[in-house]
């Protein structure tokens, strides 16, 4: 009945990550918090695909076809998710460096006006 409580880890990670973004004092910290919020999706996806006692969805000599395996679709989605997360992190960090060059600060609260 309470077996879905495991998914709450994902909900917690998302909200904690967003809290970090809202209260951040440093743009690199903000980017890390965005990554944490994103990582909640991996936990949720892999949690949905998990089955008790099942093994990895890779067949071979020790895992003949027909063995109980966990869901490969959510694992593939997690891989896509991680790649997108890494690219977003890279772009955001590049933007943080650019903000530091232009404004001389990395505190989001001190960035008031747009400058060309």
């Amino acid at each position: 009945m309470t077996s879905w409580l495991a998914y709450l880890v994902a909900a917690w990670l998302l909200v904690v990550g967003l809290y970090g973004v809202v209260t951040s004092h440093h743009l690199v910290h903000t980017v890390v918090c965005v990554s944490i919020a994103q990582s909640s999706t991996y936990v949720l996806l892999l949690g949905i695909g998990y089955q008790n006692g099942a093994t990895a969805p890779i067949f071979g000599a020790t895992t003949p076809p027909g063995t109980a395996v966990v869901d490969p679709v959510v694992q593939a989605l997690s891989l896509t998710d991680i790649v997108v997360s890494a690219t977003v992190t890279a772009l955001l960090l590049a933007l943080a460096i650019q903000v530091h060059r232009r404004h001389g600060t990395v505190d989001p609260d001190e960035l008031h006006s747009l400058r060309g």
Binding site: S3, P57, V69, Q75
Partner: peptide
């Protein structure tokens, strides 16, 4: 529920992957 045996996508993906003779279904 977490850890249950109901995985309709898993069943179809594993069957399709094995039909293509791919050991790593991911």
């Amino acid at each position: 529920g977490f850890g249950g045996g109901l995985h309709p996508y898993r069943d179809r993906a594993v069957a399709a992957g094995l039909a293509q003779r791919t050991p790593n279904v991911v």
